[in-house]
Structure formats: C-alpha cells, structure tokens
C-alpha cells in the first residue's frame, strides 16, 4: 500500500513536476483560501467597532489578496512555473491576453483608483449612470448598488469611474427646497412668519445655516414663497416629507390657503342670463 502510494506520488506529471508537487500546490492554495477566510472573519470581528465599515472592507480585501497572491505564486513555483519564463513567453501570447483582458484590466485599474480617490463609500446613497441607491460593495472589478426599490445592480468599475457620480450623503447636511403658493388675498408677510415658526419648531430643520423664506415669484394663480431649509443628511428625506405637510396644515390653520389654478374670463358682450331658463 505504502509503496504503491509512494510510487504514485513520485509519478512525473510533466518534466520534473511530480504528483506530490501538484498536491502540495493544491494544498497551499486551499490552506491559503481557508486562512484568508479565517483572517477576514477575525478582522471583521476585531475591528468592527474601531474602523468604519468601508475602510474595514478594503483592509479585509487587501489582506485577502495578499494571502492568496503569495499562495498562488508559491504554488505555481511548486508545479514548475518559472516567472522568468513570462518575460520570454510574452510576445504573441501577451498581446492576445492583453486584448482579451482589456476591459478586465480597465475595470481593475478603475477599481483601484476608486478605492484611492473614494468618491463613494459602502453604505452611501448615490446615483451612478441613471441608477440610484445604496452602495452595497466596491469590489476590484465592479461596484454593486441596492436601488431604493430593492434591486441589485452591478456596474463595472470603469463605468463608475468615468460616469458622473452624485453622492447624496457625502456632506453632513443637505438642503430642502419647497415652493409654497398662497392666494393673492393672503398676507405674504404673515405666511412667511408662520412658515418660519414651523421651521423653528422642527428639530431637524437646522438653526445654522439659517433657513430662508421669501416671496420668489408672483405666479398666475398664486404668490409663490420659496422655502430653503438645511437638514442633517440622514434625516433629509424624513424632514422633507414631514415639513411640507406641517407648513400646509399650519397655513390652513391660520386661514391661508394654497390656491387652485384659476382663470378670469371676460366676455366681449354683456352676458344675459335667465335663472328660470332651462338649458
């Protein structure tokens, strides 16, 4: 049994590479894979409270790549792969591989630059290439988003890197803009005062930068009041929803109404109407 096994292990696969060398190579890669997983799990647990999630994920990936790269280089050496041979064997093969992997290399380099420049981070709310949602992951080749309606979107990093990116949460505060129309018969100064009071009472409408409320335009059907309020970026959506309704309710409570579109029609001749007449 042992002799048979030793014979099998000594069997040459090609040139000087024996079965045992191939097995060692496979074992090294497998062990590196397991080690990378264990190190990742340990890092995520140990640094969860000390590092930001996106920074931690980049660090985990970097360590993973280093472990796997070292293992693969060692394993290739075990099975007789000579890296010096790469220089010689470049030539046509290199050109062919280069063309074939052009987009992959482009995505990879874009991925590296995205990680260095960091216009987006994991968890950010962004809009890229007509897709808007939360950044789920920034991988070396692609970036994944979860759209606001829950869809999974994978965008190659080359496109992320070259497309205009809107990051909705990059700054700590964000502005809310409304236009509120009141009737021409309503007192605009009092309406502004009511709106300012609503804003002042709302915790997430920031004190500074100061909110701005002013008559913006004299519209066809209404006096239009512009309302500009700053809110913490994480509370922006909730504040935007809630404040508009509070403003509307309070204006109505104060006897002011948001008018319907209306037109005054003038007749060229005097219009005779007979209330008793049937149409």
């Amino acid at each position: 049994m042992n002799a048979w096994m030793l014979k099998l292990l000594d069997m040459r696969l090609y040139k000087k590479v024996a079965v045992s060398d191939a097995l060692v190579a496979v074992a090294v890669v497998a062990a590196a894979f397991i080690a990378a997983r264990l190190v990742s799990a340990y890092m995520r647990r140990a640094f969860k409270d000390r590092l930001r999630k996106d920074n931690l994920e980049i660090a985990v990936k970097l360590i993973n790549w280093i472990i796997m790269a070292v293992a693969v280089i060692y394993a290739l050496g075990e099975i007789g792969f000579k890296f010096s041979g790469l220089m010689v064997a470049g030539g046509i093969a290199g050109v062919v591989i280069g063309f074939a992997s052009q987009s992959i290399v482009g995505n990879l380099i874009s991925g590296i630059f995205l990680m260095i420049e960091r216009p987006i981070k994991i968890g950010d709310q962004v809009s890229i290439n007509d897709f808007a949602g939360f950044v789920e992951d920034i991988r070396i080749i692609s970036t994944t988003l979860r759209t606001f309606d829950g869809l999974f979107v994978r965008i190659p990093n080359e496109k992320v890197f070259t497309a205009p990116i809107v990051n909705y949460v990059n700054h700590v505060v964000r502005r809310i803009d409304y236009t509120v129309g009141i009737r021409y018969s309503d007192d605009a100064d009092r309406a502004i005062s009511v709106i300012n009071r609503v804003i002042d009472d709302y915790p997430f409408a920031l004190k500074y930068p100061e909110p701005v409320v002013f008559v913006e335009t004299l519209g066809d059907n209404s006096v239009n009041i512009a309302v500009r309020i700053w809110a913490p970026v994480g509370e922006w959506y909730g504040a935007k929803k809630e404040l508009l309704w509070r403003i509307k309710t309070e204006l109505e409570h104060e006897g002011m109404e948001i008018p319907f579109p209306q037109q005054v029609v003038w007749f060229g001749n005097q219009l005779h109407t007979d209330p008793a007449a049937k149409v």
């Binding site: 700054h171 700590v172 505060v173 915790p203 004190k207 500074y208 700053w230």
Partner: peptide
C-alpha cells in the same frame, strides 16, 4: 427644546 445646527460650513462642518 430639541434642535440641531451645523458648526462650520456645509461642506465639512460638524452637526
């Protein structure tokens, strides 16, 4: 009373 504000400018201020 509960209210928030920004210290600094909107680009890199502090809530």
């Amino acid at each position: 009373r509960q209210k928030y504000t920004l210290y600094g400018d909107p680009r890199n201020g502090m809530l």
